[in-house]
Design a protein around this nucleic acid. Structure first.
Lengths: 345, 345
DNA sequence: CTGTTAGCGCCTTCAT
DNA sequence: ATGAAGGCGCTAACAG
């Protein structure tokens, strides 16, 4: 049984009323400076700790914000969460993290649990793309619990979001490959049809068009974000009449799988084929053959999402409105696509 | 304002008392089966949600368990957390995750925040090793909040822990290198003097002794868990009269840094030097030159820690006792130390 | 400036 | 089997 001391205890000791103690502690109302100090002093001395549960019950606000992500063991989500915490902790919010492990059912459970726990808000990156959990999302909105999406979003009335400009990400990655002299650029898109992946694809396509490249859908392959899918995608590409000389992958992991498969098949990278990934996961940098990748500035993304949440909390306006924050992606050029490097070995 | 419906609302609708509703909901006391069903039905129909805050205030239990780890973006901690959640969520516990980012001050803050939030327990892997936060830890114990350590632990009376047998981990890694024919085995220990790192070192030493190898402290270098420190350590080794032909690193990241540095210096791995890491981070497996590493079964570790916590909760015994759970490590042999593989290239 | 009162939503004796 | 009443700890209105 933690903290036995309540405001009543300290009130009794001081022969005043609990209300006064409360006021002193919150230094809210007009209080005689002397009693306030007295209260503060004895409170400290008695080892008083505010009972946040009681306060939450009274105020109706739990000071807890829920974050739902597919997983935490990727640099992207871990960093985004850190950004959220950096912004929210100083405001006295406790952040609880839920993982869906890419399971739509788990996502629904997370949403319900968070609502049950009476969180003050939810910041999430979606797992469900088909709309199976739309009812749960709507339940959140009905409950007037502020909701903010980051990265993997979907459009709902009144729900703000923070993303990067994925279109531009796709564009600059592709443009870079063109600049490297690549003639036939393949693209690994993602199986989950989220806006963000679609936008990367559109950026890729636009870059091709802008540079008078022919777009050929046979060079676009859908993958999940893991090594094996990248390998599998390469195998598919191998069956084409004209082999690609570049791959822009929407996933760093698939890019890595592709590189492994290509090497095993005797291709030299970047000489024969250039590869670019997406997310700038740490391993892209520290591989022997470092991998070019598009950075999503996850830390900033988390911070922005948290700020949008806080703003939403402030504005008591009943006006429904969405705020779309779009950050700029940045291409980190590394060995896997850099043909201008002096060949060492 | 979430869930408007309270037990009073449903009581009113049914012309019964809130107490009865409460009983029905908890199907606790003796209730006429018919009224119970009636209550349950209307509750569901009215969209009643239990107010966990109120219940927590009343019962004094928040159903929240705090987890404190150095960081979440490593596979080890992410998996351990998953293990904890897998075990605790079904029991109705909400898990809140706190990161220290290897900052002792942050760790203290986390502890205090968790106590303030009245968590029902804390499961943690320590950041502080010098004892700067001992007072906070003791505060947790005084509050009778169950505390369980995993991996990075320290001995406190009444605090249970879950670790792997790090001694054995160090032993089998070293033994493996000896079996590969290595004659001079260096060891990267960790700068933070936690038991677990000490034990790995002792396992290393014991393996040397058991096989009549000479132990030389010049071949033991202390590092932090990052690439640069691994590189730096290699540079130090290079100044020794007799170069080592094997490295057993207590960190996968330092092992990787070492490999990079060695390669740049023209060493062939594993021909010239064998390298073994610790933790079995995913990247060790998917590097072009895959890295041998000791697996810590983090998922199991998390599950065990959670179970120990639950047990501790059950046993109302006032008897102070520590439970030490020690799991077995497993060596995953890969290219970086496997000289028996057919040379491909 | 401080005391009084009441209630957040739930549970739990004590009656009946 | 159910109703009545009080309290978990805190805060906010309304006095005074």
């Amino acid at each position: 049984m933690p903290n036995k001391v309540t405001i009543y205890d300290i009130a009794e000791k001081l022969n005043i009323t609990a209300a006064t103690v409360s006021r002193a502690l919150n230094n809210n109302a007009k209080i005689k400076e002397s009693t306030k100090e007295l209260v503060l002093a004895t409170a400290a001395q008695m080892g008083y700790k505010q009972n946040r549960l009681a306060q939450a019950l009274k105020s109706g606000r739990s000071n807890v914000v829920g974050v739902i992500v597919p997983r935490i063991d990727s640099n992207f989500f871990a960093s985004a969460i850190r950004g959220i915490e950096d912004e929210l902790s100083p405001q006295g919010y406790q952040v609880v993290i839920c993982q869906t492990h890419d399971d739509v059912v788990k996502e629904k459970e997370n949403l319900i649990t968070l609502l049950d726990t009476q969180v003050d808000g939810i910041i999430m990156s979606l797992t469900d793309v088909k709309g199976d959990n739309n009812d749960s999302i709507l339940k959140v909105l009905e409950s007037h619990v502020p909701l903010v999406f980051f990265d993997r979003k979907k459009d709902f009335e009144g729900v703000s979001s923070v993303t990067i400009n994925d279109f531009r990400g796709g564009y600059i990655a592709t443009k870079h490959l063109i600049d490297q002299g690549c003639k036939k650029i393949a693209h690994f898109s993602r199986k989950q049809p989220f806006e963000i992946f679609q936008n990367r694809f559109l950026g890729y396509k636009q870059a091709l068009v802008d540079h008078n490249f022919e777009y050929d859908e046979n060079y676009v392959i859908e993958v999940n974000s893991d090594l094996e899918e990248g390998r599998e995608a390469v195998r598919k590409l191998m069956s084409l009449a004209v082999l690609p000389d570049a791959i822009f992958s929407s996933s760093d992991f698939a890019a890595l799988g592709a590189i492994q498969e290509l090497k095993e098949r005797g291709f030299e990278i970047p000489k024969d084929i250039c590869v670019v990934g997406f997310s700038n996961e740490p391993f892209t940098k520290f591989m022997e053959l470092s991998i070019t990748s598009v950075d999503q500035s996850p830390l900033e993304m988390g911070k922005m999402a948290a700020r949008v949440f806080l703003e939403q909390l402030q504005s008591k306006e009943t006006i429904k409105m969405e705020k779309m924050i779009v950050l700029s992606p940045e291409l980190h050029i590394r060995k896997s696509s850099n043909r201008n490097l002096p060949v060492k070995e």
